[in-house]
Every structure is written in C-alpha cells, then in structure tokens.
Amino acid sequence: MNELKWKSLITVFLLLFISPFVGCSPVIPQATLQQVDKSISFEALQQNPDLYRGKMVLLGGDIIEAKNEPSRTVFVVLARTLDSRNRPLEKYGSKGRFIFYQPGFLDPAIYRPDRKISVAGVVVGQEVRPLGDITYKYPVIENRVLYLWTEDDYYKSEPAIHFGIGVGVGL
C-alpha cells in the first residue's frame, strides 16, 4: 500500500515536470536543424547567394506568391526574423525576399499570400526577376522541410505561467 502511494506520487511529479515541455516541440526536426549553417545571415545570403551554394539555411516569412509548376511549387517569400521557435515575426520588419522550390503540388489556396511559413533548405543559387520597375535578385532555396504556421500558433505562443518579480510602470 505504501509502495503504491509512492509510485503514484512519483508519477504525478514526473507528469508535472514533463508536461510544460510537451507543447514546445520544434516544427523543424532536430536532425534538420543540426545541419543548418547558423553563421549565414540573410543579408549575406542575399548579397551573394552563389557563395553559399549547397549550404543548409533556415528561413521564414510571409508568402508573397505560390505558383504551381508541373513538378514543383515555387514560392516567393518576404523574409522575416525568426524567434526561438523558428516562427517568423512581423515586428522586426523584413530584410528582403527569397524564392524556394518545393517538390510536388501544394495548393496556393492554402499557401496563400500573407500566411507564415518556415523552411529549412539548401541554397541552390539566385534568380533575377523584375519587381515593379526594377529587377530584384532573389536567393533561391530548394526546400527540405516546410512548416505552415496557423494563427493559433501565434496566440498559443506564450507559456501560460510566468515566473518573475516585476515592478509595473505603465508607459
């Protein structure tokens, strides 16, 4: 009887400690993240995409366009800064655009403009396309892992419990 009590107590404790981490599983698999070259900044990539050919990068942002081609879907994305969960955030503005190729058919009605995605992929080069009256040089990435964010991902983002001592001043 006593042993049983201890066992259930330990179970409850384990559950209490583990449960806060369950909600935070990464959307890009750990194995892929390990291959990502974190030293490459988006600015550097944009300036000279050919220099980073073959390197794995992690990018994200707002979909500008998704276009279906016979064997792949071509995305144009407005790059955003990613947070610790690799979620693109709007508040830091944007450093530019990039293109990525996703093999197969993805429906542009789902992957529609303004939706947020994160991609891990390999740099394959650059593409120059007209943009308004100018031409724009896009770094091109071939996609390996793609994650489409939902609005709920943004709302449920903050942990429900905060620990900390604070002094509040309204500004």
Binding site: K67, N68, E69, P70, T73, F105, P108
Partner: peptide, 8 residues
Amino acid sequence: MKLGEVNY
C-alpha cells in the same frame, strides 16, 4: 484547367 503552369 490551367492552375499556375500546371494542367490540373
């Protein structure tokens, strides 16, 4: 029908 560049 055409869907992007695909004949869907």
